[in-house]
């Protein structure tokens, strides 16, 4: 599986409140989350999400367990998130909603530059350099391949 997109560079410790603020959670309309994604971090980011690969610092997705955070990213068109480390609940949630996430340190980020990555082979390529990433487990890849845990469960029936 090889995925690609344009880089969006973010810092460390981006928490789930910054990904989608608590005041937008009480709806089932996923477009609301996509429209307001990263609003409290930088209101200009939402418009750059379609086709984006987010290259973030350590501990991406820390804080609240809200699954609306990875859903917001996916609904906004994000192709994947790459970070040296993720908060564990966000990491599980991302796989469960079909958003590819890869642990990889040492990637140099340049905004809007092309990025490609492979969650199963375990690499990220950006700025002409290839970095080794931690490949996802077989079960996680299987869930991603189905588009999320709900679809994975339905396929098991």
């Amino acid at each position: 599986m090889i995925l690609q997109g344009r880089a969006v560079c973010l810092g460390a410790d981006v928490d789930t409140d910054l990904i989608i603020a608590g005041r937008y959670l009480r709806t089932k309309d996923r477009r609301v989350w996509a429209e307001h994604v990263f609003e409290d971090l930088d209101p200009a980011l939402a418009a750059r999400m379609e086709g984006a690969v987010i290259l973030a610092g350590t501990n991406f997705g820390c804080g609240s367990s809200r699954e609306q955070a990875p859903v917001a990213l996916r609904e906004a068109g994000v192709a994947g998130v790459i970070a040296p480390s993720f908060a564990r609940i966000f990491f599980r949630n991302a796989i469960n909603v079909g958003l590819p996430v890869v642990e990889c340190g040492g990637v140099r980020c340049s905004n809007d530059a092309p990025v490609s990555f492979s969650p199963d082979e375990g690499w990220v390529e950006a700025g002409g350099e290839r970095c080794t990433a931690t490949p996802l487990s077989g079960r996680m890849l299987d869930i991603l391949a189905h588009g999320g845990l709900v679809e994975y469960w339905r396929a098991q029936q």
């Binding site: 804080g63 609240s64 367990s65 809200r66 699954e67 990875p70 609940i89 599980r92 949630n93 469960n96 909603v97 999320g148 845990l149 709900v150 469960w153």
Partner: peptide, 24 residues
Amino acid sequence: DSHTCTLGAFGAFATGVGATDMAA
């Protein structure tokens, strides 16, 4: 909820998950 770890105070293994994990 992420603060489910609170209940580790009782010697339980208590942890938070997201909504889809909970549905499973």
